[in-house]
Simulated scan of single mutants.
Amino acid sequence: MFRWIFSCFLAISLLLTSCSNSSSVSASASPSSSATASAKPSPNSTKAPEAKPSDNPLEAALAKFVQLKGSATVELKLKSGVVKIELDGNNAPVTAGNFADLVKKGFYNGLTFHRVVKEPTPFVVQGGDPLGNGTGNFVDPATSQTRYIPLEILSDGAKQATYGEILPPTQKPKLRHNKGAIAMARSQFPNSASCQFYFALDDIYFLDGSYAVFGYVTEGMELIEKIQVGDRIESITITKGAENIKQPA
């Protein structure tokens, strides 16, 4: 599964070059096999050897991504005021880590909110696209490659997140799409999230298990509700927890 996830990234990068809505919130996604790992003891060993990071396929796979090991607080400055957001790296380390890293790089400063859906009922405010039209992604200047992250959803009561697939309806995620949730936008491919994010303007639980929530607005939700298409992100800064950002091994 882990080998599939990273090979899938290469295919995704090619497919998305011709996709006109590469990071729009969509209710459809392509299912894939579950991300599971098992450790087999040596037949000549009388006791289990101590586990090393390289011995765990999942840990080895996740080590290739920026992670947030804990929580972090960010402040989103809009023309109308400041919004505070708590990022949950305990339950979504890769997703929160990717966002926190982009915030730290100053990537979002000056970008616009290109999609706002409030009718017929409050839905989402979406931004973070460098192209401003819903088709842009983050290209790492160090590698000249687009950075994609796997769909990461922790089921309520589970100890390990599921990677690369949407959850079945019988499983509820620990981080739900409550009003004020911040989550990653993506295309129909589960592992196509890059930099675009959205805020839930209401409880939109039908997206649970299909999109990765990684935090919640703690102050200033009324400012999020006033955002219009074209409004700019004056700045996003990390005010607490920057030390919890861990770069790839």
Rank of each mutant, 00 (worst) to 15 (best):
I149A: 04
S210F: 01
R176S: 09
N133T: 13
K40E: 15
G220V: 06
I85P: 04
K47L: 09
L167T: 02
R147N: 11
F6R: 12
K104M: 08
G70K: 13
E86T: 14
L223W: 03
F113D: 06
F189C: 00
T112E: 14
M221K: 03
A249F: 04
E234S: 06
N21P: 00
N244E: 10
A249W: 01
V229E: 15
L111W: 03
I224A: 00
G81P: 02
Y216D: 05
H177N: 11
F199D: 03
V94Q: 01
A11M: 13
I245L: 10
A72L: 06
F123K: 02
S30P: 01
V125A: 14
V25F: 06
N137M: 07
L68K: 07
F197W: 05
A61K: 09
K246Q: 14
N21M: 11
S45A: 15
S54V: 13
K77G: 03
Q160Y: 09
S24W: 13
Q188H: 15
S71H: 11
R232Q: 15
K159G: 08
P43K: 07
I236Y: 02
T237C: 02
P130I: 02
N98V: 04
R176F: 00
P169C: 06
S192R: 07
Q196E: 11
D203I: 07
L175K: 08
S80H: 04
T170A: 05
S155K: 13
Y211S: 13
T143A: 12
F6A: 09
S80F: 06
G241D: 01
P248S: 11
S38Y: 10
G180M: 12
G134L: 12
L16W: 01
G132R: 02
A61P: 06
T135K: 13
P168G: 01
F99G: 02
S32M: 10
P120N: 11
N178Q: 10
L207V: 04
L154P: 01
A11S: 12
N21G: 14
S80C: 00
R186W: 00
A96G: 07
F107A: 08
Y163T: 07
S194R: 07
Q126L: 15
A63N: 14
K79Y: 09
S194E: 05
F138I: 10
Y205T: 15
R3K: 10
T239D: 00
S30I: 14
A242P: 03
A200C: 15
P57G: 02
G230I: 08
V94W: 01
V25K: 03
A242K: 12
S210A: 10
K105H: 06
S22C: 12
V217Y: 02
S23N: 14
P53M: 11
V117A: 05
F197G: 07
F65C: 04
P49R: 05
H114Y: 11
S235V: 05
